[in-house]
Design a protein around this nucleic acid. Structure first.
Length: 272
RNA sequence: UAAUACAGCGUG
DNA sequence: CACGCTGTATTA
């Protein structure tokens, strides 16, 4: 499509890709070197024009953005991303690649469960780090009657679900129980037809599906145990999210939008 | 039955 | 820091 990566002869078809509601916006006109609003013969004026890669990209990103503010934001973001790529390129040129950089590409998930009474109202929370210091926070899987352990198992299952979509990930939980269930004991139980010495195994449903999922992706997922309340940021955040799930009673997982991590950590026992 | 481990909570 | 409960598994 784009033969030359540095510049491109613009065509009528290309311009049409950028048109929304029958017109181009101000920023798009500026890129093409046209007046805004467009005058009658604008199509003739652009036939010979060449655009750089940046200009063609921006032209398309700007499609349909009427507000000047939105246009400015798009241009700003583009520069930001371009800058980021440039920096990254320079870094990987100097340092010999891999190791440190590969580590940053690993998906990192902290998961935690909580309950109000045991058994009682239960919920789960996750903090997901990927190429970023600011984790994505999820809270959900509220159940009216759960245990500390089902809440932890639920959180771990969600973490596995997410991990299954990435090439490499590490999951951290503070629940030795859930970790052992899914990645250790389950192998033995499975051999025994999901029983242990004739006695019933608790929480079998979640354990079965979690173990099946884990077993299918275990070569690219590591589950690690960490101590609870030991100051691991991700663990603390996941803990707050589990608490939030209980408060909000949402079964489906929702993303928690926030500004600062401190602000999230502070929501300890702010009663509604 | 006992012990251990990791959690989830509560009280002082 | 101390104590108490329940959830779950393991070992003996």
């Amino acid at each position: 499509m784009i033969r030359d990566w540095k510049s491109m002869q613009i065509t009528k078809e290309f311009i049409e890709l950028g048109i929304a509601n029958g017109t181009l916006n101000k920023a798009q006109c500026k890129i093409l070197g046209l007046d805004f609003p467009l005058n009658e013969n604008w199509e003739e004026l652009i036939t010979d024009k060449e655009l750089t890669l940046k200009e063609t990209n921006l032209f398309l990103f700007l499609r349909g953005k009427l507000a000047i503010k939105a246009q400015e934001q798009i241009i700003k973001n583009y520069d930001l991303v371009a800058d980021f790529h440039k920096q990254k390129k320079e870094v990987s040129k100097k340092d010999k690649p891999t190791e440190a950089e590969d580590k940053k590409k690993i998906l990192e998930i902290y998961c935690d469960g909580a309950c109000e009474g045991n058994p009682g109202k239960a919920g789960s929370g996750l903090a997901i780090y990927y190429l970023n210091d600011k984790p994505t926070l999820l809270y959900g899987q509220y159940t009216q009657r759960g245990t500390n352990n089902t809440a932890e198992l639920n959180a771990l299952y969600k973490a596995l679900l997410i991990a299954s979509e990435y090439p490499k990930s590490i999951i951290r939980t503070d629940s030795m129980y859930s970790l052992d269930c899914i990645s250790n004991w389950a192998y033995g139980w499975k051999k025994n037809g999901w029983t242990r010495k004739g006695k019933e195994i608790k929480n079998l449903e979640i354990i079965k599906i979690s173990h099946a999922l884990y077993d299918s992706i275990k070569d690219k997922v590591t589950i690690q145990h960490i101590k609870a309340h030991a100051g691991f940021e991700g663990n603390e955040l996941a803990d707050r999210m589990a608490g939030l799930a209980i408060r909000e009673k949402n079964d489906e997982y929702l993303e928690y939008h926030y500004d600062s991590i401190d602000e999230v950590l502070k929501m300890k026992e702010d009663i509604v």
